[in-house]
Design a binder for these strands. Structure first.
Length: 827
DNA sequence: AGCACGCCGACT
DNA sequence: GTCGGCGTGCTC
């Protein structure tokens, strides 16, 4: 016999440590349970939707709990396992539970109320004793039943409005209300049917004669309807939009027919998530010998209950292996979660998966609208194993929080990718690592797949924590691409460079275009784009709010800051020495796009970078065009390096490998290797032989040679030794403390002092404070303190200690203005 | 994070 | 007086 819940610990959508205890009123006792949302009052005015985490039968001393006001859900939205996963993230990544709630639930599930006022039911309409402003408010309330505080602000054109509101409340003229409204509405479409009267042939013929005399547009609407309906007059239903479009008629003609009762409108609920038919059979997938043995290897790892690291070279056919595993999982009645690092990749993979699994596949990522997310959540919560239920979720890192009730397999593709780590805002979690933890909690298998494993994962495989499976050969007839290293310095000396292209790269591009093959050009950073500088004194305009040089954007003919969005016109004169010798230099994707168009005027060039992929479908459009071969040359940033699968790429050019390698960061070599090998992997899939040209000023650099030879283990051995020697991950764990303040002096002081205090206990495991690469963003100065921790049993305790230390330091009166952000396992 | 409260300077 | 600005403290 279970006792009645008396108290509940509730997670609230606020960035505060810990949870809040609320009393469970008797009438709600049967409904309250972990994983359901509840309405509670928080602070003086706020009404919030929170998530019940635990039931308590006692309440801690010293707090007077308020009562839960209402329970929002019939059944838990989130399972106990997922809630315990949330607990883990809070503890491991040192964030607040509320931050996870915000990251996990679609906005519409955690709506916050806005306080408002309504007319008091007993108000007699006597406005005589009111001030002018009070009168304005009361007058407005005659027209709208409810006003929010900000509405009132606007009406009386005054910022502070509480005095006014309070006086109205005291006079019993208005009452204050706070309501929670759920905003999710299913999407509906309008369906048109033929009015019953016209089901009979005679009436219909009469009508047509009638319309034929003068109402031609109406007639054409009717004809269009009949054409689609065919013999099925009675039951035919057509979308209003389609019908009007087909007939080329206007809405007024359509409405006229509705008024006559010829057409009847119905509204029908439809999914925002689309509808897809499976067009291919799983059995058509024929795995080669290598893939078969990889599949066996994976199953062996599953049997040992170990996370599996699938190291398959680019183009080795990992996806086919995944599809087989997914199919097995689904057939055993369980769901699959397929994580990808970025939206750019989802659009390609989703098409491949939908061909086999149709509606069973659902996409999910941050560019989904609130409504779409809510619909998917609802469908997942009510998952019951039906044919069209969401069996396979393909998504970016936030899909880890989808409350899948019957998950049976997690796949993390491109596991090495850094965008699995969320940086801002909290929770700053690494989705790949979190996925391994989630799988452990769910007691289900997990695969991490990649052509270039992260050092961390590969180290785990070497030390027996993960199970390693190799897929060392490309699928089908394609061979690994031939990689050339082009010496930029040498070509410059010989004056053979054309813009930023070496003769070697140009030759290969030309060859590829002549044989109707496509080209991908990779330029590593947007930051390396055009800058404006004075040729006399070297002055270059920087952002007034950030510690960066402004970059020139041709399409708007302006200088722009990539950190805060600040824009300004290009100065005609140097503001330092006054000369008018202001020029642009450097090269970004935009510049390359421009230069390549001059070198190959007939080629169709497209650019894929941050600027050209802002909208939800922009990726898909560019990738689609490239797939359809509407584009010959694709110029892009990191986005083009990632797991995209094109069948006709003859040449890949790495425009400048050096900036990547020289990046001041202990992961720069690993990252450069990954980028070069990944982008090279886009070349020569299927039967086309592929070529890669890496342009560099340092052709003898180890990383260049290793990447040229696709020598992953060579890179691993070299880098892992460095990591060991300097005690970096995977041998240590890192916690970065990011210190921010608008006051540069206080910040320096505080960071120095905090680092000193930490050093007193942790010794030289504390590095810094250091100036980060960009030491000022949006008028805020920044310092980093880095702490290395031995990853032993005390890891969690040590992290908690750091958290407490920082919190107590922050309560120092002097350093109130400094904010400290903790980033665990930073990138 | 929000939100209220309280204190101070500016303005009708 | 009253309003806006901003620093401070609290939220079960």
């Amino acid at each position: 016999m279970q006792t009645q819940p008396r108290y509940a610990e509730v997670i609230l959508p606020v960035p505060l440590p810990g949870m809040f205890t609320y009393a469970v009123p008797d009438e709600l006792a049967e409904q309250v349970c972990p994983g359901k949302r509840v309405v509670v009052s928080f602070g003086k005015k706020r009404i919030l939707l929170g998530m019940v985490r635990t039931i308590l039968d006692q309440c801690n001393d010293g707090i007077i709990p308020k009562e839960i006001l209402a329970v929002m859900d019939d059944k838990p939205l989130v399972t106990e396992t997922h809630l315990s996963f949330w607990d883990w993230i809070v503890q491991y990544y040192l964030c607040n539970p509320g931050e996870i709630l915000v990251a996990a639930l679609p906005g519409s599930f955690r709506l916050e109320s806005e306080t408002g006022i309504e007319l008091h039911p007993d108000f007699d309409g006597d406005t005589g004793k009111l001030s002018d402003k009070e009168f304005l408010v009361v007058e407005a309330l005659q027209f709208t039943p409810r006003l929010t505080i900000s509405d009132i602000s606007e009406i009386v054109d005054q910022k502070r409005v509480m005095n006014l509101v309070n006086s109205l409340i005291e006079k019993n003229i208005v009452v204050s209300t706070a309501t929670i409204t759920e905003v999710y509405r299913p999407k509906t479409i309008t369906i048109v049917r033929l009015g019953e009267k016209y089901h009979a042939e005679e009436t219909l013929n009469l009508l047509m004669d009638e319309l034929g005399k003068r109402a031609f547009k109406q007639l054409s609407l009717l004809m269009a309807f009949l054409q689609v309906a065919g013999l099925n007059l009675k039951n035919a239903a057509i979308r209003k939009k389609e019908l009007v479009l087909m007939a080329g008629a206007s809405l007024s003609a359509y409405n006229a027919l509705c008024d006559k009762g010829v057409f009847e409108e119905f509204s029908e609920e439809v999914s925002r998530l689309g509808n897809f038919e499976a067009v291919r059979n799983i059995n058509d997938i024929v795995l080669n010998e290598m893939q078969e043995s990889a599949l066996e290897g994976i199953q062996e790892g599953f049997a040992k209950n170990l996370p599996v690291l699938l190291h398959g070279v680019t183009g080795s056919g990992k996806t086919e292996v995944y599809i087989r595993l997914m199919n097995d999982c689904i057939r055993s009645g369980r769901q699959v979660l397929y994580l990808l690092p970025e939206i750019a990749l989802t659009s390609q993979i989703i098409n491949r998966l939908r061909a086999y699994f149709g509606n069973k596949v659902q996409l999910f990522h941050s560019r989904y609208s609130e409504q779409e997310r809510t619909e998917l959540w609802n469908r997942i919560v009510s998952f019951s194993g039906l044919h069209d239920d969401p069996w396979i979720i393909v998504g970016a890192r936030s899909s880890l929080f989808l409350p899948m009730t019957d998950a049976g397999l997690i796949i993390v593709d491109e596991e090495h990718d850094h965008s699995f780590k969320q940086f801002d805002p909290a929770p700053r979690y690494q989705a790949r690592d979190a996925a391994v933890m989630l799988a452990a909690k769910l007691k289900i298998p997990v695969i991490l797949g990649t052509a270039t494993p992260s050092l961390e994962s590969y180290h785990n495989a070497r030390t027996g924590k993960y199970w390693l499976v190799n897929l060392p050969v490309r699928y089908g007839k394609s061979a690994m691409p031939t990689v050339y290293v082009a010496d930029v310095a040498e070509s410059q000396r010989r004056r053979e460079m054309k813009s930023h292209f070496t003769p070697l790269l140009i030759t290969h591009i030309k060859q590829a275009l002549e044989t109707k093959q496509q080209v991908i050009l990779f330029q590593n950073r947007r930051g390396f784009s055009l800058r404006v500088f004075c040729t006399v004194c070297g002055w270059h305009p920087g952002c007034p709010h950030c510690d960066v040089t402004l970059t020139y954007h041709k399409y708007i003919d302006k200088l722009k800051c990539h950190y805060c969005g600040f824009q300004t016109i290009v100065p005609k004169r140097c503001s330092d020495c006054g000369s008018d010798e202001v020029r642009t230099a450097g090269f970004g994707t935009e510049k390359i796009e421009e230069d390549i168009a001059i070198l190959f005027p007939k080629a169709r060039v497209r650019r894929m970078d941050f600027d050209t992929t802002r909208t939800k479908n922009a990726y898909q459009a560019i990738i689609g065009d490239f797939e359809q071969r509407v584009v010959d040359i694709l110029v892009g940033t990191q986005m083009v390096t990632k797991g995209l699968d094109f069948s006709n790429v003859g040449v890949v050019g790495v425009m400048n490998a050096d900036a990547m390698i020289a990046f001041p960061d202990f992961r720069s070599h690993e990252r450069s290797f990954q980028h070069i090998v990944q982008v090279s992997g886009r070349a020569g899939r299927q039967s086309v032989p592929g070529f890669v040209v890496i342009q560099t000023g340092r052709p003898s650099h180890d990383i260049i040679k290793l990447a040229r030879d696709h020598n992953f283990t060579g890179m691993y051995e070299m880098e892992i030794n460095e990591r060991k020697q300097f005690f970096y991950p995977p041998f240590s764990r890192l916690v970065k403390i990011i210190c921010k303040s608008k006051d540069a002096r206080i910040l320096s002081q505080a960071a120095m002092l905090l680092a000193g205090e930490l050093r007193d206990t942790l010794g030289n495991y504390v590095l810094g404070p250091e100036y980060p690469l960009v030491s000022k963003i949006k008028s805020e100065y920044i310092r980093h303190i880095l702490i290395k921790i031995v990853p032993d049993k005390k890891l969690t305790a040590k992290k908690l200690w750091i958290r407490h230390k920082v919190a107590s330091f922050q309560s120092n009166d002097q350093y109130r203005k400094v904010r400290f952000v903790l980033d665990v396992d930073p990138y």
